[in-house]
Lab assay of single mutants.
Amino acid sequence: TTTITTTNEEDARRIATEWKNKGYTVHVEKRGTTFRIEVR
């Protein structure tokens, strides 16, 4: 599992989409101002 964190919502969406397009399972969680993107 790879975890990526960013405070930028646009980055979070872009990163999540990129990983999904590669065939990975992506889970995005917002904690306060931080977005945690888990890639499996």
Rank of each mutant, 00 (worst) to 15 (best):
T34V: 14
Y24P: 00
H27F: 13
T2Y: 15
D11L: 11
T17S: 11
N21C: 09
K20H: 09
T2N: 08
T5K: 06
N8L: 05
T25D: 13
R31K: 11
R14V: 06
T1H: 12
T1R: 08
V39L: 08
V28R: 01
Y24I: 02
T33F: 11
I37P: 00
A16G: 03
N21H: 08
K20G: 07
R36M: 15
E18P: 00
T33N: 15
W19N: 02
T33R: 10
E29V: 12
F35P: 00
K30L: 11
W19P: 00
D11S: 07
T2K: 12
T25Q: 12
V26D: 00
T1L: 13
I15V: 06
A16F: 07
R36Y: 15
V26F: 02
E10Q: 10
A12L: 03
K30V: 10
I15S: 02
N8A: 05
H27T: 14
T6C: 09
Y24G: 02
R40W: 14
T33G: 13
V39D: 00
G23V: 01
T1K: 09
G23M: 02
I4Q: 04
A16C: 09
E29N: 06
T6Q: 03
I4Y: 15
K22T: 03
V26H: 00
R14L: 07
I4T: 03
K22A: 09
A16K: 03
T17R: 12
Y24A: 04
E9M: 08
T5A: 05
R40F: 14
K30G: 04
T7M: 10
K30R: 11
R31Q: 13
R14Y: 05
E9G: 07
I4V: 06
V39M: 05
R14K: 08
I37V: 09
I37M: 02
R36K: 10
R36I: 15
I4C: 07
W19H: 03
W19R: 01
T1P: 10
I37A: 00
A12G: 02
R13F: 13
F35K: 01
E18F: 15
T34C: 14
T25E: 13
T33A: 12
T17H: 09
R31F: 14
K30A: 06
T5F: 15
W19V: 02
V28F: 06
E29R: 10
N21T: 09
N8Y: 05
I4D: 01
T17F: 11
T25F: 12
V26G: 00
H27M: 11
I37T: 01
T17Y: 10
R13K: 11
I37K: 00
K22G: 04
I37L: 05
E29W: 12
K30E: 05
E38F: 15
F35E: 01
T3V: 15
I37R: 00
E10G: 07
I15T: 04
